[in-house]
């Protein structure tokens, strides 16, 4: 069972690589932020797996909780920052263009 958990951790780590590609190649800034957000959630899971392998779950679970909190706050802050750059746009323009067709 310990082996299985280690393999699951390796699988999660391997699946982070394609998302890493999105961070490097992503055409816009928000694409990169989204990819970082996904990797952050998975890192919280990975921390618990590391705790189970080293048999110190009660310590690592606190790290995972803190990491999840920071991840959420970070993505909200990034969204707010990008919002502030372009504050006054509404979705009416896009809809008008759609209804024209």
């Amino acid at each position: 069972m310990e082996n299985f958990i280690a393999y699951a951790g390796v699988a999660i780590l391997a699946l982070m690589l394609p998302i890493m590609y999105r961070i490097i190649a992503g055409p816009t800034a928000i694409d990169r932020i989204v990819a970082v957000n996904v990797i952050g959630t998975k890192t919280a899971v990975l921390l618990i797996i590391i705790g189970m392998i080293f048999e110190r779950v009660e310590m690592f679970v606190d790290f995972a909780l803190t990491y999840a909190l920071l991840n959420f706050i970070g993505s909200i802050a990034a969204a707010r920052f990008l919002n502030r750059v372009n504050p006054t746009k509404s979705f009416t323009a896009m809809e008008a263009e759609e209804s024209k067709e």
Partner: peptide, 10 residues
């Protein structure tokens, strides 16, 4: 929040 930021970014 992120999709709204992206949407308003255009």
């Amino acid at each position: 929040a992120l999709i709204k930021a992206g949407f308003e970014e255009g």
